[in-house]
Amino acid sequence: MPRQEPRGCCVISGRALHEDLGALCAEVFVQEGAKVLAADISGGQIETAAPLGPSVRAR
């Protein structure tokens, strides 16, 4: 089966953003073409999202 153009979005929230797994998930989604919304009440999403580029919005 031929690979389809990736599309979609992903929301990653909470403690996952402060752990390696959350950052890794966000990175994989970005590599596959998704737009990612990173959200956390503590503000840690900003540091996680910054190196991933414009496909990730931190709120």
Rank of each mutant, 00 (worst) to 15 (best):
A26E: 04
R3E: 05
R15E: 12
I12Y: 05
G33A: 10
E19K: 13
L37H: 07
L52W: 01
S55Q: 10
A50R: 07
I46W: 04
G53L: 09
I12F: 05
A38D: 07
Q4K: 05
V28W: 06
G43K: 03
C9L: 00
G53C: 09
P2G: 02
A34L: 15
C10F: 06
G22L: 05
E27Y: 05
L37I: 08
R57S: 14
G22H: 05
P6V: 02
A38E: 09
I12R: 02
Q45V: 06
S42H: 04
A38G: 07
E27P: 01
G22R: 01
A50P: 00
R7C: 07
E47G: 14
K35W: 02
H18W: 06
A34G: 00
G44I: 13
V36Q: 08
A16E: 14
Q45P: 01
S13H: 05
P2F: 02
R15I: 14
G43A: 10
E5W: 00
Q4T: 07
I41M: 13
K35C: 07
R15A: 12
D40L: 02
L52F: 04
A23K: 13
A16F: 03
E27I: 00
V11Y: 03
F29P: 02
R7Y: 03
R57D: 09
V56E: 11
E27N: 06
V56S: 08
D20K: 08
V28N: 12
G53F: 11
F29W: 06
G14D: 02
S42I: 01
V30S: 10
L37Y: 09
L24F: 07
V36I: 03
G14V: 04
P54Q: 08
K35H: 03
R7S: 15
S55D: 13
L24G: 12
C10T: 09
Q31R: 10
I12L: 12
P54V: 01
A50T: 12
L52G: 05
E19W: 03
D20S: 13
A49K: 03
L17D: 12
I41L: 12
G33W: 02
A49D: 13
A16Y: 05
L17K: 07
R15P: 01
E47K: 11
E47A: 15
M1G: 13
R7V: 10
V56W: 04
S55R: 09
V28P: 06
V28E: 14
V56G: 02
G8S: 07
R57L: 08
R57Q: 13
A50L: 13
P54M: 00
V36T: 04
R15T: 12
H18G: 15
K35T: 09
R57T: 14
F29G: 03
S42T: 14
C9H: 06
V11T: 10
A50V: 07
G22T: 06
S42L: 14
F29V: 04
E5G: 02
V36F: 08
V56L: 07
L24P: 05
K35L: 08
H18D: 15
R3P: 11
L37P: 03
R15N: 14
V56D: 09
L37G: 07
P2Q: 06
Q45M: 12
P51E: 15
G53A: 10
A34N: 08
E47H: 11
L17T: 11
P51W: 13
A26P: 00
A49W: 02
S13M: 06
G8C: 05
P54I: 00
L37M: 08
C10Q: 03
E47P: 00
V36E: 12
